Simulated assay, not measured.
Amino acid sequence: MINKTVKKVLKALSYNDVELEKSRSIANIKALDPMKLFHTKVDLRIHNEGHQIPIRIFFPDKSIHLEEDGVSDFPAVLFLHGGGWVTDSVDNYERICARLAKNINQIVIAVEYSLAPEHPFPAGLMDCYYVAKSIFQKRFFLNINPEQVTLMGDSAGGNLAAALSLMARDKKEFEVKRQILIYPAVNSDYSETSPYPSVQENGKDYILTRGRLRDYINLYAGKEEDKENPYFAPIKEKDLTNQPETLIITAELDPLRDEGEDYGKKLKEAGNKVEVHRIKDAPHGFFALGIKAFHVKESFEIINEFLQRTRLK
Results as ranks from 00 to 15, higher is better:
1 M>I: 10
2 I>T: 14
4 K>I: 14
10 L>A: 11
11 K>F: 13
12 A>K: 11
14 S>I: 04
18 V>K: 03
21 E>A: 14
25 S>F: 13
29 I>V: 15
31 A>C: 07
32 L>G: 09
34 P>K: 11
34 P>C: 15
38 F>I: 06
38 F>M: 04
39 H>R: 11
46 I>W: 00
49 E>W: 02
49 E>G: 08
51 H>R: 13
52 Q>M: 08
52 Q>W: 10
56 R>L: 04
58 F>T: 01
62 K>I: 05
64 I>A: 03
64 I>E: 07
65 H>G: 12
66 L>G: 07
66 L>K: 12
68 E>M: 08
69 D>K: 15
69 D>M: 09
71 V>A: 04
74 F>V: 15
76 A>C: 13
77 V>M: 12
79 F>I: 00
83 G>L: 01
85 W>D: 01
97 C>P: 01
98 A>I: 02
99 R>Q: 10
100 L>K: 06
101 A>I: 01
104 I>F: 10
104 I>H: 08
105 N>C: 09
110 A>E: 07
113 Y>F: 15
113 Y>A: 04
117 P>Y: 04
117 P>F: 06
117 P>C: 03
119 H>T: 06
120 P>V: 14
120 P>F: 11
122 P>N: 05
123 A>L: 05
124 G>Q: 03
132 A>V: 05
134 S>Y: 02
135 I>S: 13
135 I>Q: 05
136 F>A: 12
138 K>F: 05
139 R>W: 01
143 N>K: 13
144 I>C: 07
144 I>F: 11
147 E>P: 06
148 Q>Y: 10
148 Q>F: 08
149 V>D: 07
154 D>M: 02
154 D>V: 04
157 G>E: 12
158 G>V: 10
160 L>Y: 01
161 A>I: 05
164 L>K: 03
170 D>M: 06
173 E>H: 08
177 K>T: 11
192 E>G: 15
192 E>P: 00
193 T>R: 06
194 S>V: 13
195 P>I: 13
198 S>R: 00
199 V>C: 10
200 Q>L: 15
200 Q>N: 14
201 E>G: 08
203 G>C: 08
205 D>M: 06
205 D>L: 09
206 Y>H: 15
206 Y>S: 05
208 L>D: 07
209 T>A: 14
213 L>F: 09
214 R>C: 10
214 R>I: 13
216 Y>T: 08
219 L>H: 13
223 K>E: 15
224 E>M: 05
229 N>F: 08
229 N>E: 08
230 P>V: 13
231 Y>H: 08
233 A>K: 00
235 I>G: 01
239 D>N: 15
240 L>Y: 06
256 L>D: 02
257 R>L: 13
259 E>A: 06
261 E>F: 09
263 Y>P: 05
266 K>H: 14
269 E>F: 06
271 G>A: 14
272 N>H: 09
273 K>D: 12
273 K>P: 00
275 E>W: 03
276 V>W: 05
278 R>Q: 12
281 D>T: 12
284 H>R: 02
285 G>L: 02
292 K>F: 13
292 K>N: 15
293 A>M: 07
295 H>G: 02
300 F>L: 04
300 F>G: 00
304 N>I: 01
305 E>W: 00
307 L>W: 03
313 K>M: 01
